[in-house]
Design a protein around this nucleic acid. Structure first.
Lengths: 338, 338
DNA sequence: GCACTTTCTGGGAACGTTCACAGAAGCAAC
DNA sequence: GTTGCTTCTGTGAACGTTCCCAGAAAGTGC
């Protein structure tokens, strides 16, 4: 209660040693579970540890061992996405499960301001982590170049344009977009538009590219709208504009499920039936997809596998192996919206 | 490319010192921006740092300074919520902004398995952080008792039942629930039910308590349904059951906006008009609230302020001040759903 | 020339571990 | 009794910083 500024010194290994009547070395061996320590010594040390309330100081340990057994995961997202993007949580959990099994601690660092960016870079460089996973780095991301300069084991989730020499994991957004758009065409749609988002990232650019190539000569640049972020609002506004430009539109590729949900709301408000009048497909297979009526046809993105693969890439580099780019498979989930 | 296992030793402060022809002490003073170092020495050190590629080793620094200037933020959520709960992101960003301003690094640690729980406890105890914020700890949470035993500066977001002696920040869920439910009554509803969730947390329990007391003698335990988590599905299923039990129900308090959205979907499917036939109110003012048609009346929870306040509580304790519980104000956002 | 202050630099000690090595003790084999 | 092996323990050195003190150098005032 009255913690009068005493701030009692933490017990050290030496305190344990003298309490147990043994040496530092023996205590260390017990703490680390090494062999060659007698049963009596072990018991004496253990009760001494309990008595003085010893816990090992990690800073000292990391210093001498020259490793931290921690991996940083850098989240660099605009506010709105940190709240809505369901993939981030899955990536986090996927990475955590791999690292946890390898006895590494995952520490997540979020970057919100330029000040954060500098502080996080310092954190990474200081040796407090043995490696890093960076998710959704965008073009000319300062942290991306920082990590490259540091030369610590690192992997990106998603390929940041313009940084060719850092290993990453990702999905083939072009092929996935092609597949789902082609199926839209196969079901007879001829006037197909796209609500594109986040063209400052590989995912946004590649989905658009997949759309363009799937349509081939039927591609009409006038039916492609661009928005900065994957949001419900982008879908709602984009759809309204598409209807204005082309009232007889009969198919839409939304760059994400949230976007698709927004588009569907606008359509239904204006009295169009989905999928009868207009077919919609999304991307992500997030909870949005099931929440829509009719439910969305979409591309399932293996977010947790991305997290796992990125973690594995970092661990491989720590073990001195060559890290190679990993592309994961997506699959189309065919529901009722198209 | 062929990084043949060399793992070149990192440059230390001594390498800088000899490259600059100065002493360790002077280099340290330059690195830490202290006064009493001559302009020439400063320049020599700076160019030597660039030349040998020196970066400070944080483990060594933390060891001697006995602090890390990092605060842990422990996220202990079931999978489903980590993806959907919009409050978590806001809390994170709120805490980060306070800590960033105070030049502390926020490190988030997620707990998914029992193994994680132990590892995170070790991380906290090892001195790698100077304090901790714990969000959404539930009854009998192992990490909650662990933190208490460690006696490191800590604060909870939300009051974990059964751990009275740890400071926390929260909102008055009872009063907020009372306010919004009372308004439901004031607009003439007489047969009002509740879809309650997460009774293993203070938020779930207190919202139910607020509902009960607001209704007073009109309270009918038969019109309260309980679900484990705040989910859309709970709302959809709960509403269906309420309609079965009481077909002429005319008001519903959903324990969260996601729950309310599910309930609204069920109602509309069954041909009930909102708010004309049945009024609905939610809790959180999350993106769900605006996504519903009609939009939800709900309680606005200042998630980012909760994060900020929790961070401030931890910093206060680090500075040796008494930490006191902080309750933040909520406000009712009145829209069209009731 | 002397005393005093201010500015600047160097280096010993400490932070709390782990690691490597030396050596003691016990036992078995000859 | 000597040799050799295994088990167990203690201790010096190292990890890379920061802190503190001593002292040099330079400036100021008499």
């Amino acid at each position: 209660m009255d913690s009068t500024r005493v701030r009692r010194r933490r017990a050290t290994i030496n305190d344990v040693a003298s309490a147990a009547g043994l040496s530092r070395g023996t205590v260390s061996r017990v703490v680390n579970g090494e062999k060659y320590v007698s049963p009596e010594a072990k018991m004496a040390v253990e009760s001494a540890i309990a008595q003085v309330g010893y816990v090992r100081n990690s800073a000292a340990r990391n210093l001498v061992r020259q490793e931290s057994r921690a991996i940083g995961l850098i989240i660099h997202e605009p506010h709105s996405l940190l709240f809505e993007d369901p993939n981030i949580g899955s990536i986090l959990l996927g990475a955590n499960s791999v690292l946890s099994a390898a006895d590494y601690q995952l520490v997540s660092l979020i970057i919100d301001t330029a000040r954060d960016s500098r502080r996080v870079a310092d954190y990474l460089r200081g040796g407090l982590v043995d490696g890093a996973v960076i998710i959704s780095a965008r073009t000319s991301d300062p942290i991306a170049t920082a990590v490259r300069n540091l030369k610590i084991p690192a992997a990106f989730v998603g390929h940041p344009p313009g940084t060719p020499d850092i290993p990453y994991v990702g999905i083939d957004n072009v092929a996935a977009a092609q597949t789902i758009v082609r199926r839209l065409l196969d079901t007879g749609r001829t006037r197909v538009g796209m609500i594109a988002c986040a063209l400052d990232r590989d995912s946004g650019q590649d989905r658009l590219e997949g759309f363009r190539t799937a349509l081939g000569p039927a591609f009409d640049p006038d039916l492609v709208l661009e928005f900065p972020l994957y949001t419900y609002a982008a879908g709602a506004d984009g759809m309204a504009e598409l209807l204005r430009r082309r009232p007889d539109i009969d198919g839409v590729f939304a760059a994400s499920d949230a976007v698709a949900a927004g588009a569907m709301a606008t359509l239904q408000e204006q009295g169009r039936r989905v999928p009868d009048d207009v077919g919609i497909v999304g991307f992500d297979d997030s909870s949005w997809a099931l929440r829509c009526k009719p439910q969305l046809s979409t591309v399932k993105q293996p977010a947790d596998l991305l997290g796992r693969a990125a973690a594995e890439l970092v661990l491989a580099q720590i073990e001195g192996n060559e890290a190679e780019v990993r592309m994961l498979n997506t699959s189309v989930v065919w529901r009722e919206s198209a």
